[in-house]
């Protein structure tokens, strides 16, 4: 009796491993911008890391705040030192899950809209988001593109009143990532 349970458990584990399919991205492009009549703010990070588990629908995205590049050095400095405090909180991290996994066939080429629900942590603050992500499955690779709106308030980032008019209330975050299967 005990033995059979053990065997079933081992088989189950083995099946899990053979089906678990992970797709990786190490050069994802994440960028954000906010516009006000005074000034446009735009920053790019082309070194986002991400893993999609097509079996469970889990998605993890991680970026380093210091890798965001602004056109103006001064903005970059303010972003790092005063707003996201990247010395204290060097990473931005998203942990989420595809909620409509049954509508996506990662083994069949095509375009799918994945509803990704999860928690984004920036500046040490958690905030939940639901993001529609366009997934283009093409042979062995997956391209994911998405966009969602955030604000400094979401992450308890205080903006001094002197510059408040210069910094947009709504910050749009965009992502474009290409994943390839993890083989090993």
């Amino acid at each position: 009796m005990k033995k059979s349970i053990l065997i079933i458990a081992i088989i189950g584990l083995a099946m899990n491993f053979s089906f678990a399919q992970k797709f990786l991205c190490r050069d994802g492009h994440v960028w954000f911008f906010g516009t006000t009549p005074m000034e446009n703010i735009e920053a790019h990070n082309k070194q986002a890391s991400s893993i999609i588990n097509t079996e469970t629908g889990e998605i993890v995205v991680s970026v380093l705040m210091k890798s965001f590049e602004f056109e103006k050095a001064l903005m970059q400095e303010h972003f790092n030192e005063n707003y996201v405090e990247s010395d204290k909180f060097p990473k931005g991290k998203f942990n989420g899950k595809i909620t409509n996994l049954n509508e996506i066939d990662f083994s069949k080429p095509g375009s799918y809209t994945a509803q990704v629900k999860g928690v984004l942590n920036i500046h040490g603050v958690d905030k939940e988001y639901e993001i529609p992500v366009e997934m283009r499955v093409d042979g062995e690779t997956i391209n994911a593109q998405g966009k969602f709106a955030t604000s400094a308030e979401d992450f308890k980032i205080e903006i001094p009143s002197v510059v408040r008019d210069k910094i947009a209330k709504q910050i749009d975050v965009n992502l474009n990532m290409s994943f390839s299967p993890y083989k090993k």
Binding site: L24, C25, R26, Q47, S49, S50, I51, V60, S62, V63, L64, K66, S67, P90, K91
Partner: peptide, 15 residues
């Protein structure tokens, strides 16, 4: 290069 930190899948990042 400039050290940006450590990231999953990439290790320590120099930019």
């Amino acid at each position: 290069g400039k050290c940006d930190g450590m990231l999953m899948l990439q290790g320590v990042i120099l930019s």
